[in-house]
Nucleic acid binder design. Structure first.
Lengths: 202, 202, 202, 202
DNA sequence: CATGAATGAGCTTTCATTCAT
DNA sequence: GATGAATGAAAGCTCATTCAT
């Protein structure tokens, strides 16, 4: 593993545990076992580390999600599987996701900065994934007639909220994946049709 | 307005805008128009200000919610109105809520500290509010048979997620209150019964 | 007890325990159960409290010692009894003596200030007490021929050193009074004459 | 001279002159001609500087004394030479000794801290040095039959008291070394034997 | 006499960053 | 590529003191 990667791993662990502001560069280099100067040789500054971490995780997140969305199936099934993918991602990449949740939106990401542009761009593509799935579901009859814009916002808010609740909340939380899927499908399925997709699955 | 209140208001505005860590005590006293020492006369330290703000907002939040829950009605209606109350609170107290969302769980609130006890206590009562409503709904037939524990976690995660998405998210968001209510009611109502309670309301 | 006395007592206890610099005026007023302003009503400032305490203790100390010295007896006996008096004073007024030992010479007592004049005046009288006794002892034959100036300095240094060693030293110390007396008398008695004055006493 | 040494020298001079509490870190770095941060790069904190100074001086002090004690000679001669060594140390290292005398026992050295352990350990070894010499002197007949424990305490208290009296006292003091030696030897020698060892010396 | 809210200068300390090697 | 000594701005906080009541 290169020194750069060692540094990133150390930063991810520390940012996840103590937050960006709660972590000093000294702690990072100590945990990584390199000298102070090395950090600033490989990264422009401390903020550069955070941005690198966030961009990496967001790109991988989006890639996984877009792959799921590219499979041909009903709109509702796409939404279901996006939810499952998102949950799975949270379970496998909880450390990086903690960094994201703790420190974004961070004070250090200035409005109109390239970094903010990147973040907004990411959120838009994330938004589009769900929006397109819902639109398709309304055409193929798997999703009831509701405002796809508004319901997309609800799904986005809900999913990130669940991640936060589970990873950062003060209350111990049971496994919830399929309940979240059911919850959303009940709300999205056309009236009278009871979604049992998660039973069909397995 | 006393100096203490002036200071709290200044801190709320700045914490909401720039976060706790991004705000210096100098900025607070400058905005409040008092001397540095005055802050530390009225509060133990900077963290004491944050705690005061958080305790105030959480207490008022809980009070509003418990008042809503105390009205006799069906379990589902109670859930609906809790959601509306929560949304209304977000709209009227967005500044304080921003402070809460930005800076909790903060690294500065140590596990097992009295502060953390207070926060956990608050979350438990918040949890119980929804849990009791769902349990009652399952008895009175207004809510389908699901795990009330799990669905309570989903509602909590969802509501805080929506607050964050709307108040802190990088995407502009339309008004969503009744859609959130519908979304949840669809997921909670017994199968086959389409919830239209929010139309009945008005 | 007047508020002024209450404040002095609180200050003595705290200065003895934590030193002048380690004690804040807030602590003093809290322990005394009065308001901040009261301290500054009764004393010019914090330093004024210390000076008052030091002057009181030094005056009483000197008074006791001068009374002992005024009794007609041999020079050596006077020295002996001065030592015993000093020791007794340490045992009965250890708190005030701790204040003196911890905080004098304090940085706050400026050279050539009236306070310093007072302190120097005190030391001179203290010095004279021993010096006169030794001089008298050399005349009456109870004390050997040595430099009374130098031996006075030795006695002064020794006595204050023993006080410090016993009251502030890190090592537990046994009762030493008569040994100190013997030690000094052996050094002061004319050669060949073994002092047993502390046996004669009792 | 390294920056670390420069800083230590500046601190010694200032602590000796104005005391630990009376000296600000700004003064130290100014006197040393380095930046504020440099102090905290080389030392954990201000207290760390004091501890470093104290440990250095105590170690050297003890080393000198133990070297003196290791020379084979009568018990009384050992005591004499320990006194001379102590006096010589005070004369050559008065600055560091002033720091020690002004600021120890300092409120900042917590009971049971490693620092306090170190200090107590030092005092014990210092104590043993004199105790062993007296015990040996009682065996070889050069020292009278007295409690070696008690007389050791007296010697320790006396020597530190003389240091304080001479270095910190408000009265000008003449040279006293041989008088202190005589004083102690008279008190320690067996009755009837007049010690003139300091004349034999030279 | 007594109060206590208010002050602000000054303190110690942290930490991201630089740069000569 | 890598180092780590050095930096200095900025932070949170303490505390003796003042003064209107």
């Amino acid at each position: 593993m290169t020194r750069r990667e060692t540094l990133l791993d150390a930063a991810i662990a520390l940012f996840a545990e103590k937050g960006y502001n709660g972590t000093s560069t000294s702690e990072i280099v100590e945990k990584a076992g390199v000298a102070q100067g090395t950090l600033f040789y490989h990264f422009k500054n401390k903020e550069g580390m955070l941005l690198t971490i966030l961009e990496n995780i967001l790109n991988e997140y989006l890639q996984d999600m877009e792959e799921v969305a590219s499979v041909t199936q009903s709109g509702l099934m796409t939404v279901e599987n996006l939810i499952r993918c998102s949950t799975h991602f949270r379970q496998t990449r909880s450390l990086e996701l903690l960094v994201l949740m703790r420190d974004f939106p961070a004070d250090l990401i200035k409005p109109d900065s390239p970094q903010m542009m990147f973040i907004i761009e990411f959120f838009k593509r994330f938004y589009d994934l769900f929006k397109n799935a819902i639109d398709r579901g309304q055409k193929d009859g798997s999703i009831r007639k509701i405002s796809s814009e508004k319901y997309t916002h609800i799904l986005l808010g809900m999913l990130s909220g669940m991640d936060r609740h589970i990873l950062l909340g003060p209350l111990p939380t049971p496994a919830l994946t399929e309940e979240i899927v059911s919850f959303c499908c009940s709300a999205l399925s056309p009236p009278g049709i009871d979604p049992v997709s998660h039973e069909r699955r397995s």
